[in-house]
Deep mutational scan, measured.
Amino acid sequence: MTYKLISNGKTLKGETTTEAVDAATAEKVFKQYANDNGVDGEWTYDDATKTFTVTE
């Protein structure tokens, strides 16, 4: 399945996607992506749209 990340960081804003077997796997990928880009904030997940959002 395709999962989307919306980043509302102070230094990184935008969207990216990943293919993953489940939401937990996608979350690990996205949290590593955010960490690699210096984004640390509040996370939410919408199962209906398969979208994670991180806001700093």
Rank of each mutant, 00 (worst) to 15 (best):
A23T: 07
K28M: 11
A24Q: 12
E42K: 10
T25I: 07
K31S: 03
K4D: 03
E15G: 06
D36R: 10
V29M: 09
A48S: 12
K13I: 13
D47L: 05
T55F: 10
A34L: 11
D22Y: 03
E19Y: 15
K50V: 02
W43T: 00
T2S: 07
V54Q: 01
T25E: 14
S7N: 05
T55I: 11
T53K: 06
T49A: 06
V39Y: 07
I6H: 06
T2I: 14
T53D: 01
D47V: 09
N35W: 14
V29G: 03
A26N: 01
D36V: 09
V39P: 02
E56R: 04
N37Q: 11
D40I: 14
Y33G: 01
G38R: 05
Y33R: 03
K31Q: 08
T53L: 07
T17E: 09
D46N: 09
V29P: 00
T49C: 04
E56Y: 09
T51K: 02
S7K: 04
A24V: 11
Y45K: 01
Y33E: 02
Y3D: 03
A23N: 05
D36E: 13
A48G: 07
D47M: 07
E42D: 13
L5N: 01
V21P: 15
D46S: 05
V39G: 03
T51G: 01
A26Q: 00
G38S: 06
T25R: 06
K4G: 03
T25F: 07
T11N: 12
I6P: 01
G38H: 08
V39H: 04
D22V: 02
M1Q: 14
A20E: 04
E27A: 10
V54P: 01
E19Q: 14
M1T: 15
G41T: 02
D40Q: 14
Y45E: 01
M1V: 14
N37A: 10
K10V: 12
T51C: 05
T2P: 05
G38F: 07
V39W: 14
T44D: 09
A34H: 03
T51H: 02
D47Q: 08
G41K: 02
A23L: 07
K13A: 09
A24I: 10
V29C: 09
V39C: 08
K10Q: 11
D36Q: 10
Y3L: 02
A24F: 09
Y3G: 03
Q32M: 09
E42F: 13
L12T: 08
T2E: 08
N35E: 14
E19T: 14
G14S: 12
N37M: 14
A26C: 01
F30M: 02
K50F: 09
G14N: 11
A24G: 08
Y33L: 11
G41W: 05
E42M: 11
A26I: 02
T49D: 04
T49Q: 05
K50I: 02
A26R: 00
A48L: 13
K28V: 10
E15W: 13
N37Y: 11
Y33M: 08
N8A: 09
I6C: 06
V29A: 08
T17R: 07
Y45Q: 01
A20F: 04
G38Q: 07
T11M: 10
D46Q: 04
M1P: 09
T17D: 04
T55Y: 10
A20T: 05
L5I: 03
T18G: 02
T44Y: 10
Y45H: 00
Q32N: 08
A26M: 02
N8S: 10
